[in-house]
Amino acid sequence: MRTRYVLLAVGVAVLVLLPAYGGNYLVRFGTFLCMYAALALGWNVIGGVTGYPSFATAAFFGAGAYAGALLQVAHTPMPLAWAGAVVFVAAASAVVGIMILRLRGHYFAVGSIALVEVARLVASSWSDLTGGGMGLNVPILPGGPEYAGMVFLYSMFAVAAAAFAAGLWIEHGKLGFALRCIQQNEDAADMVGVNTTACKIAAFVLSAVFAGATGAVYASWTAYLDPSDAFSILLTLKVPVMAMLGGAGTVLGPIVGVVVFQAMEELLWSNFLEMHHAILGLMIVGLIFFLPGGLLSLGAHRRRAPARATSREVPAE
């Protein structure tokens, strides 16, 4: 266990020092790493620890991106715009969570995918506000590309670090214990005194907040948004896959998954641009068939068996 944290610390040091020695390409790669780490760690709270199969990541990523971008377009300073985006996503996800967390299993999964679709459709058709399919230009951060690269790397890093801290807190705290009970048997959790509704909403909002913050930073970083980029179906699938690749429900799993996934993407996929979706598909097939517990489950110092595939789920009626 300790080796893992040492490796993590080394990785963080490399990442933080990137602007000093790495070129633009590496800084960009590092920023993407942090972005996906934040997303995967966020997803892990609801999808891994709580066991709710959420594919709503892109809905909150996009909501945060648009909220931040629109605030910036309305001349709000960037950090304030990000804060506003986080508040907006927290509120929106709480409302949505109250509604869809009553669903379980397959229905929850379908509901969560529908959220992404609805969000994209709304962003596309509400063109007075969002620019619709024409996209939305976000003010560019002054100070030159290198300065901007550094600012966005550190901003994404901060979001990822916060998500990691939240993951640790959940793992060792009362909320995390409650969420694990829900993951194991929701009715039984209710019976032993877990306020399942409140805990699930807390998990959902936490998970959404990190997606929203990431989205807001992303919007400022790319300085341009359109509905299919902000509410990307690819993103909504990729993020859970990354978390599962490392090990869903574990603290470090999502980070491991993101690093391996992004490294593969950079090394392999950049050479086969037109095969992007296909390679992702093949990777998923390989992951599901040969690595059901994720990479961390291969390690000898496994803390606990990955809590998955325990029994066939009761068909939702």
Binding site: G47, G51, P53, F55, G105, H106, A109, L234, L237, P240, V241, M244, A248, E274, M275, H276, H277, A278, L280, G281, L282, M283, I284, V285, I288, F289, P292, R308, A309, R312, E313
Partner: peptide, 22 residues
């Protein structure tokens, strides 16, 4: 994967769909 949780089965068919789409 037919007896596995929804996260697994859905992710698999989702992945296969990406492949088919491509």
């Amino acid at each position: 994967v037919v007896a596995r949780p929804v996260l697994t089965t859905l992710t698999l068919t989702f992945g296969l769909d990406m492949l088919a789409y491509n």
